[in-house]
């Protein structure tokens, strides 16, 4: 794990690649994935190489994944909520 959560508070449960993941209620999908130890988000459509967020503010498009069935969502702009379903490009084992 690279990122550690330092601020507590209420949590919600989301599903990432089929597995339950606890997220802070104020997380975006991107910060929830980072906190859960996800190293890769989507893949670059041109090169096929794994991507991870660089900016977390909607600029870099490194955090694209499928959120609630919507492919190509910017995870850094999606607030989490209970039951949210996220699919990454894999490669996080």
């Amino acid at each position: 794990m690279t990122w550690q959560r330092t601020i507590g508070g209420p949590t919600v449960m989301i599903r990432v690649d089929g597995k339950p993941v606890e997220a802070a209620a104020h997380d975006t999908v991107a910060t929830a994935l980072l906190a859960a130890g996800h190293r890769h988000f989507g893949t670059n459509a041109k090169t096929g190489r794994p991507l991870a967020p660089a900016c977390l503010i909607g600029i870099c498009f490194g955090c694209l994944c499928t959120v609630d069935g919507r492919p190509g969502s910017q995870a850094c702009l999606e607030p989490v909520r209970d039951g949210l379903v996220v699919e990454t490009g894999g490669g996080n084992e």
Binding site: W3, I7, A24, T31, A52, L56, G62
Partner: peptide, 19 residues
């Protein structure tokens, strides 16, 4: 993957309390 802007680190701290 894993190369970020420092602004991105700021966001991780503020949004998720992540360091």
């Amino acid at each position: 993957a894993g190369v970020m802007g420092i602004g991105g680190v700021q966001t991780a701290m503020k949004q998720g309390g992540l360091v």
